[in-house]
Computed example of a mutant assay.
Amino acid sequence: MTTQHHLRGVLLASIACILWGISGVAASTLFIHNPHITPLWLTQIRMISAGIIMLIWAQLAGTKPLAIWRQHRDTIQVICYGLLGLIPVQLCYFEAVKVGNAPIATIIQFLGPFIISIYYFLFKHVKPRRAEAIGMLMAFVGTLLIVTHGHLNSLAISPVVLFWGGLSAIGVATNTLIPRPLLPKYGALTITGWGLLIAGIFLMVIKPAWTVSLSLNAFEWLLIVVIILLGTVAPFFMFARSLSDILPTTASLLDAFEPLAATIFSVTFLNVQLTGFDLFGGILIILAVMALSMNVRKMMARLHRQTD
């Protein structure tokens, strides 16, 4: 791998994570400008539109996206991915943005890797190493600072924000773990495309988008397009492409750009006010996730040795 390729991979992954952060800010702007727009409605539109685009792209790329429906077990797994992985990571995140703000929602969601680590400890019996344990402690302290602002007898943010943000963090874990066996077989485009489309159709059944009476202006439609194309499709392609130039552990470290972008753009354009506790807690969580990410390969190597 040349230095030029490594630099390209780092750049693509960084831009992808920044775009994911911007999508949260765009959603927050939508909710502020038009209170009638709900996270459920926006998630449906985002998922179905992005899912169709990805599946068409997969077909044009020759990956045969329909092949997955010929395997019963794989079909069930991709449905579980859509319902248990993508719905929590997207719908619950938008709910947290709606009742709180993009920076706090993104930082809480950023705790997802620790849920993955806890999963491996409980179900795969892979004990966390010292760096991982320290990272978990840092993440706990960071979350505590954001939630209480140093006053342990009271909450500084709404329990509703914590609830939706916590579910979105769980979604990060299920969104990562469920589709892993399918990706080498069918490709990320096909799996993500079907997952998004299945999740969007399921949400449509709950409350169809066309039953919601909305009047949207050009600016609001522009934000929706930004969320679909720049906040979903484009970063997915960039991040997937970056993995051919850099290691997954390097790419996961660059995930820190997502909460940073959400914070910077929210403070700059939405005048979101963050306290010193929010900023310090967010920095602790970001550093903790980076520490955990640097041990991912070691953790996976141990898991493979135990299962061989």
Rank of each mutant, 00 (worst) to 15 (best):
K64W: 08
T75A: 14
A61S: 13
L86H: 00
P65H: 02
R70M: 07
R70Y: 06
I79Q: 11
R70A: 14
L66W: 08
L60G: 05
P88M: 09
Y81Q: 03
C80D: 07
Q59N: 11
V78L: 14
Y81I: 01
C80P: 09
H72D: 05
Q59G: 13
A61Y: 00
G85M: 01
G85P: 05
P88E: 01
Q71V: 14
A61P: 09
P65W: 02
P65V: 04
Q59I: 09
T63G: 04
I79M: 15
L83K: 08
R73D: 11
C80Q: 11
P65N: 08
Y81E: 00
A67H: 07
L84E: 01
I68L: 08
I79A: 15
R70P: 05
H72I: 13
T63I: 05
L83D: 06
L66M: 10
Q59A: 15
A61D: 06
T63K: 12
A67P: 07
Q59L: 15
L83V: 14
R73Y: 02
Q71Y: 07
V78M: 10
L60V: 15
I68W: 05
L60C: 11
I87Y: 03
Q77F: 06
Q77P: 08
Y81V: 00
V78I: 15
D74E: 15
K64F: 02
T63L: 09
L66P: 00
T75K: 14
W69V: 02
P65A: 11
G85F: 04
G85C: 00
G82Y: 00
I87T: 06
L86I: 08
L86T: 04
R70Q: 12
L66Q: 08
K64M: 07
Q77G: 11
H72G: 05
L66D: 01
P65M: 04
G62Y: 04
I87G: 03
Y81W: 07
R73A: 14
I79C: 15
A61H: 11
G62M: 11
H72M: 12
T75F: 13
I76R: 11
H72V: 15
P88I: 04
V78W: 02
Q59C: 10
I68H: 02
T75S: 14
L83I: 15
Q77I: 10
D74H: 15
R73Q: 10
I79R: 11
I76G: 15
L84P: 09
Q77K: 14
V78T: 00
P88R: 04
I76M: 14
L84V: 12
T63N: 04
G82L: 09
L86G: 00
K64N: 09
T75C: 14
R70K: 13
I87C: 04
I87K: 04
Q77T: 13
L86N: 01
C80A: 14
D74F: 03
T75D: 05
C80G: 13
